[in-house]
Amino acid sequence: MEDNAERVEAFQQEIQSMKLKAGGAEGESRLLVLGILMGVAGLVLAVVGGIQVAADANQYNQRAAMATGTFLGIALLIGGAALFVRYSLARYLRFWLVRLVHESRANTDRIVEAIERQGGGQG
C-alpha cells in the first residue's frame, strides 16, 4: 500500500492539472432539440412576416414586418437547420462507425473460424 500512496498522489496531481473543456453533462441532445425549435420558430416567423407584408400596402410597414418577421425568421431557420444537421449527423456517423467496427470484428471471427476448421488454429 506504501507504493500505491505515491501512485494515488501522482494521480491526484495529474487530475488537478488536467485541462478540461467546460461543459460537464452532455448538451448534444439539448442542442438538437434547440435546432428543431429554432427551425420551427423561424418558419412561423417567416410565414407571419410574409402575411404581414402582403396584408399591408404601406412600404415602411412592409420593411418593418420583413425586418422583424421574415429576415429574423429566415436567420432562425438557417441556424436551426445547421444545429439539427450538425447534431443528427454526428449521431448517425457514430452509429456508422460502430457498425464498421462490428462488421470488422465479425469478419475476423469468420476468418479465425475458417482457419480453425482447416486445422490451422491453435486456440
Partner: peptide, 25 residues
C-alpha cells in the same frame, strides 16, 4: 452523462475525454 457529476480525486471531470482520463491513470 446527461446530468450529474463524475469526480476523480475530488475534481469534477464530467465530460473529460477518455484518453485524458486513461493517461492520468
Amino acid at each position: 452523462p446527461t446530468a450529474g457529476k463524475v469526480l476523480l480525486a475530488g475534481r469534477d471531470v464530467t465530460g473529460a475525454r477518455a484518453e485524458q482520463l486513461a493517461r492520468a491513470g
